[in-house]
Design a protein around this nucleic acid. Structure first.
Lengths: 205, 205
DNA sequence: TGTACATCAGTGAACGCGCGTTCACTGATGTAC
DNA sequence: TGTACATCAGTGAACGCGCGTTCACTGATGTAC
């Protein structure tokens, strides 16, 4: 608890964490600079020593989120190897795990409406995550007969889309009331069926 | 253009349409009562003759959206029959078509953070849409051997999730920069592969 | 080790703004006789 | 058909609030000699 009077020590990260907490609680739209500052035990003006403004703070949260997300996917992928199939499935699961474990980051990344143009670092960080997913898809696709092999980027997108959809629709208090199934099971089953459709899982397995 | 002086004529609906336009432009968070009133050519206070407040206006937009959405799904389903497969695929396509054609409604429904508890009519309207999807799934599932038939509600959820994910990630300016594929193609292919995985499309088709 | 000084990271007060909402009001419309 | 009156759907001014941001400032820290 190194709150040594006048100087905070590591205010920048403290503000990021305060923002994170607030975003979790009220969403990216409900988050305010003043509250984040208060939560970090500091005057609102102090925020401007470390960020250009409100949006820059949210962008930093999103950026850290993308980094964590990328790492998580990477580890999942690496641990899933050497089986391409297991590696691919692991990355799918990692998606949901991330959304669950880092809801604030997730919201800042996907629900804050940050413009990618205005924050190029974000785009770069997001590309990295996507690259992991695509690498996993690429490895998998070598098991598909070449003549009926869809582009790896395409089925990476499919898995990403289904994962995202499950998170948004069923893993939160969202619109469809409560989930009809545990989101993890739903996603697992969905990806399983999808992979069977690709001919990567035997029909009787 | 029945703008007859003092009395507006149909202000309620005019406000809904103004809200729609604003939500399309700046998202549900950027929408304000004052601007909607201005756009409808009316004083902010007039809004309160028709709605309890800001949230009630958004809720009305979302409600109308759910109705349109339900109708659209229903028509798609009916037109797709008698083939259960065609009907199911048609409802999937209708999802994306709705998101494209009614972006304001879509955002109000799925991205505004409206609490279902606070607006039970919304829950009911959403249930109706889901019911269509589940009916389509139910019909389809009769073609699957009973012993390996997943619950219809489950694969309705899968299709819903993938559709929603495609919309959020690839059909808007969203996080992953621009789409690697046209969203319609992406979704069509994704659902195709998924249905093959269910054994509903022959592997060589 | 001690002092002078530059730099840094905060404070505190203030700003202008636009928001959602309220209130007493008034002009327009519709109805009863 | 004409008048009196109730109801309705707007106005316009005002409110209190919290926001993001700025500014001149000051206390704390670190460095040079």
């Amino acid at each position: 608890m190194p709150k040594r009077g006048y100087h905070h020590g590591n205010l920048k990260q403290a503000l990021v964490e305060a923002a994170l907490k607030l975003i979790e609680e009220k969403g990216p739209a409900g988050f305010t600079v003043a509250e984040a500052a208060k939560l970090a035990g500091v005057t609102p003006a102090a925020v401007y020593r470390h960020f250009h403004g409100r949006e820059a703070l949210i962008a930093e949260v999103a950026l850290q989120g993308h980094r964590i997300f990328g790492d998580l996917l990477e580890h999942a992928y690496a641990n899933g190897k050497p089986s391409a199939l297991a590696a691919f499935e692991a990355t799918g699961r990692a998606y949901l795990a991330f959304a669950r474990k880092f809801p604030g980051h997730y919201m800042a990344m996907f629900e804050s409406g940050l413009s990618i143009q205005a924050h190029p670092e974000l785009g770069a960080a997001a590309d990295r995550s996507r690259a992991v997913l695509e690498r996993a898809a690429e490895a998998l696709s070598e098991n598909i007969p070449a003549d009926r092999r869809p582009p790896a980027a395409m089925f990476a997108s499919h898995v990403w889309a289904m994962s995202h959809g499950v998170v948004e629709l069923f893993a939160r208090g969202a619109p469809g009331a409560q989930a009809p199934f545990p989101p993890e099971d739903l996603l697992e089953a969905g990806i399983g069926i999808y992979l069977r459709g690709l001919g990567l899982i035997k029909p009787d397995d």
